[in-house]
């Protein structure tokens, strides 16, 4: 194994790391809002909203992400009318197409995770909040949502990891993130195994750090499950 080549590959791949992180972060954050909206649609009890969310989730979970990316990046250019609008300045950019596709895709998966979390909130908690005189919105903000987030976090971390992995598909529509650069180096040098090791290690490192962060957030959000800190001894010389 050629250490120098590995090191050079690492140096070129690491320059593409910010783009990968940026893609993943914007897709996850924007997707989370959309997912919350979809989950609320499903739980709203209003039939048209419920059916819209169901159809959306069915369509986006049943088709490959790559098809969705192509549909947005290549497909929308078919509509000549769209090219005249202001939207075109966004949809013309491969970067924004990738972000939009990843966001729409992750929203479908995470809305079901969030819905599970919202459903898991014990009704007694909501009842108690109402008894305290909280309004519907305040109950949601203070009681339901925090409890739901805590419950949904483990499942949501899986979705975040698969989003980090999914950013690699952006390389197919010419975005030079880590996988894009890796593919370029492979086609220049034909040393697939070395490049694979370096790129794989970068993705593993991202996902490892991500799981640690989520574990930390979970720890912070569930103080009730922890042993209480040992009470400080009042005075050392008491005995």
């Amino acid at each position: 194994m050629d250490i120098l080549f590995l090191w050079e590959t690492f140096l070129s791949l690491i320059t593409a790391l910010p783009l990968t992180l940026q893609l993943a972060a914007s897709a996850i954050v924007l997707g989370a809002f959309l997912a919350l909206g979809l989950a609320l649609c499903r739980l709203s009890g209003i039939l048209p909203l419920d059916w819209f969310a169901r159809a959306y989730i069915f369509a986006f979970r049943g088709t490959p992400l790559l098809v969705q990316i192509f549909l947005i990046y290549y497909g929308l250019s078919q509509f000549r009318g769209l090219r005249q609008t202001i939207l075109w300045s966004v949809l013309r950019e491969p970067y924004w197409c990738a972000v939009i596709a990843l966001m729409l895709n992750t929203a479908a998966y995470s809305s079901e995770i969030i819905r599970g979390g919202l459903l898991s909130v014990p009704f007694g908690q909501v009842e108690a909040a109402r008894a305290c005189g909280m309004s519907r919105f305040m109950t949601f903000r203070r009681i339901t949502l925090p409890l739901a987030i805590r419950q949904a976090l483990p499942g949501y971390s899986n979705e975040m990891i698969s989003m980090v992995k999914a950013t690699s598909l952006a390389s197919i529509i010419t975005i030079m993130e880590v996988t894009g650069v890796a593919a370029r180096i492979i086609s220049e040098t034909y040393r697939a195994i070395e490049v694979f090791i370096v790129a794989g290690a970068i993705y593993l490192a991202i996902n490892f750090i991500l799981t640690q962060l989520v574990a930390f957030a979970e720890y912070r959000l569930s103080p009730h499950l922890r042993q209480p800190a040992a009470l400080p001894t009042t005075s050392t010389g008491a005995a």
């Binding site: 990891i161 992995k165 999914a166 950013t167 690699s168 598909l169 390389s171 197919i172 996988t179 890796a182 593919a183 492979i186 086609s187 034909y190 697939a192 195994i193 694979f196 790129a199 794989g200 993705y203 593993l204 996902n207 490892f208």
Partner: peptide
């Protein structure tokens, strides 16, 4: 489970 599937495909195809 931690690396993108696309990379694995590249590995097998080019490798």
């Amino acid at each position: 489970r931690g690396i993108p599937d696309l990379l694995v495909i590249y590995l097998f195809y080019f490798g």
